[in-house]
Simulated assay, not measured.
Amino acid sequence: MEAHGRRHWMDALRGVAVLLVASWHAFSTLYDSMPVAIEWIFNFLSVYRIPLLLFLSGLLLDQSVRKGAGAYVVGKLRRIAWPLIIWSALLVLIGWPAAKPFDGWYWLGEGGYLWYLGVLLACYAIGLITKFVHPLIILGVGTILMEVVDTEIAFVTNVLWFGLYFFAGATLSRWLDRWLRMGPLVPSLLVSASLAWAAYSATVNGYAPVLHWRPLLLSIIGVVGVVWFASRLRRVRWMEWIGQRSIVFYVAHVPFIYLTSRLLGEAVPEWVGCLVGHVVMFGGCLMLARFLDRSILFEFPWVPSLRGRSAAEGRSRDPNPRRGSNPEPRLDAAGTTEPERT
């Protein structure tokens, strides 16, 4: 464990993953026909992008649950459900084509990029039972359900598939310190196998296939290996900063891309539009993250009675705290530790 109870490499990995997701959406929106090489790279990375985000959130599930049920539920509603609703409404206001406000599933992210927040909410709801049931059991049951459940509801499909990465992370969290102390041989073999799969899948399948245990396993072992290597890299503080505000970057990037595409239209070559779109998207997200990350756009304000109740519950769980000890770091909506304030 690093200083002040933080694992900074988690923040950095989350930052990398959310930037890759944002860049993929920019290229796929601003190009009618994406260059073959770029498309292959993004298909190669599809084995890791969203799986890594969910896996990292799962790694911190136990830490969230230890806050107590009240603080846990309130925190997820404030920092996941709230931005899901707010940004779903904003997409309607800007005329985003996939917005379907009269479809109930839309408000859980179905039909658009906000599905990730809907999946997170479902995972955290299920995650409450990990106080009594080992996450490995949930992972096993979920894998069986993923193979046998046939549904046309995208939200359910996404939970059954991507939720498994969340609970794979929650499972590893029980042995994370032991895993990080291992030598390099096993992690190197895992990453090598996963990279080979990613290259094969990008060449043969395009975007990584879903809803089957083999691609699930090959993706998970790759993410597990990446975690081992990431914990040994030097700190990249600006990437940690982005990772600590990953919810801001995730929910805000698509509106910036969409508005850029509407304003530019076909007035410029596609590569120019894509370059401008990246600048607008990253610049806009940086400004929001710098000045408005604690605003009502991304977090429902604290209700004083709930603050007092959560604090009281926390005290009841630790009646004799050690004087001078560092408090457990707070978690943001996605499960990562919140940024240090200096």
Rank of each mutant, 00 (worst) to 15 (best):
L54M: 12
L56I: 15
L56A: 07
L56H: 07
L56W: 04
S57V: 05
L59A: 09
L61S: 04
Q63N: 10
S64L: 12
S64I: 01
V65P: 02
R66Q: 13
R66A: 15
K67N: 15
K67P: 01
G70K: 11
G70V: 13
Y72H: 07
V73G: 01
V74K: 05
G75Q: 07
K76Y: 07
K76V: 02
R79L: 15
R79K: 12
R79N: 12
A81R: 10
A81Q: 07
W82N: 02
P83S: 04
I85T: 11
I86Y: 03
I86W: 07
W87T: 04
W87P: 00
W87H: 09
S88Y: 09
S88C: 09
A89E: 05
A89I: 06
L91F: 13
L93P: 00
I94D: 03
I94Y: 08
W96L: 14
W96D: 06
P97G: 04
P97A: 09
A98I: 08
A98L: 13
A99D: 06
A99S: 12
K100L: 12
K100S: 13
K100C: 05
F102T: 10
D103Y: 13
D103A: 12
G104R: 11
G104H: 08
W105V: 00
W107P: 00
L108K: 00
L108I: 01
G109H: 05
G111M: 08
G112I: 04
Y113W: 09
L114G: 04
W115E: 07
Y116R: 06
Y116D: 03
Y116E: 01
L117M: 05
L117P: 00
L117D: 00
G118P: 00
L120C: 05
L120W: 08
L120Y: 12
L121W: 01
A125F: 10
I126L: 15
I129T: 10
I129Q: 07
T130L: 01
T130S: 11
F132D: 06
V133L: 07
L136P: 01
L139C: 05
G140T: 00
T143A: 15
I144R: 03
L145A: 14
M146R: 06
E147T: 11
V148W: 12
V148L: 10
V149Y: 11
T151L: 04
E152H: 14
E152V: 08
I153Q: 13
A154F: 14
F155K: 05
F155A: 02
F155M: 05
T157Q: 14
N158I: 01
N158L: 14
N158D: 15
N158F: 12
